[in-house]
């Protein structure tokens, strides 16, 4: 069993929509929507509900832990209260991620799908901050988010394990590095003992890979360091050259 996610939003529709989006890339992860508030059977209104969040956490537990993601202020407060009410045993395996809801949920779900630990899933959620530079209409990555493990900067000779590898390939498939290929790369790299950057961003972060916005014909450049550096570069090369199994 993997880590489960609970999506807390003021809006039931937002919570359900985020679950729907994240489920596309994480079919085996338990994703629970806990949005809106009701009066016990009445219509669902905007707001957050202690009972719904509590029930959501219960439903999502049973695996390797639960990560709770929230939207605006009072959703955070409601989630914190629910966590305080958990028995100490249960509390130890539930985390509240400080993350952007949509990006964080997708990143966490992909990480959980790959069988990562609770800590790793929380980290994936919290690292997934991506913004759009409107004048370019092309996604870009904030500097803070783009430099996870800056000790793995290109050319660094004192890398952990003392091994480095790199490679460059052209994207052959029509869709380029969209969500599914990004998830393929991120989950495949997650198990390798290497720091990997792809075009300057963390190769283990599906959100950051997606945010590169690389289309067909663009160049993918990978740099890796650590004991599995070569394996990581080989994996990326094979995946890219095969077009991720998608049509050219």
């Amino acid at each position: 069993m993997s880590v489960g996610l609970v999506i807390v939003s003021h809006s039931a529709k937002i919570a359900e929509g985020v679950v729907e989006l994240a489920a596309q890339m994480a079919p085996d992860v338990v994703l629970v929507a806990a949005g809106g508030v009701d009066d016990g059977g009445g219509p669902v209104r905007i707001g957050t509900s202690f009972d719904r969040v509590q029930a959501g956490i219960e439903q999502a537990s049973g695996g390797d832990g639960v990560v709770v993601l929230t939207d605006l202020g009072s959703a955070v407060m409601t989630a914190e209260m629910v966590l305080e009410f958990l028995e100490p045993d249960a509390r130890a395996s539930v985390r509240l991620a400080q993350a952007a809801l949509v990006e964080g949920a997708v990143a966490a779900a992909v990480q959980a799908q790959g069988g990562s630990s609770l800590d790793e899933v929380v980290r994936a959620a919290e690292a997934a901050v991506v913004s759009i530079r409107p004048e370019e209409l092309e996604p870009f990555v904030s500097h803070a988010a783009a430099a996870p493990g800056s000790d793995a900067a290109p050319g660094a000779s004192a890398s952990p394990g003392g091994r480095t590898a790199s490679g460059s390939w052209t994207l052959p498939n029509q869709m380029g590095l969209h969500t599914r290929p990004a998830a393929t790369l991120a989950t495949g790299l997650a198990d390798l003992d290497a720091d990997v950057t792809v075009n300057g961003v963390d190769g283990k972060s599906v959100m950051l890979l997606m945010s590169l916005g690389l289309g067909q014909g663009r160049t993918v450049t990978a740099e890796a360091s650590g004991p599995d550096a070569q394996a990581a570069v080989d994996f990326i090369g094979q995946a890219v050259e095969s077009g991720f199994g998608e049509p050219d």
Binding site: H10, V37, G40, G47, S49, F50, D51, S74, M77, E80
Partner: peptide
Amino acid sequence: STVGGAAGP
């Protein structure tokens, strides 16, 4: 359980 907004928590 019933308030919903920030006043609830």
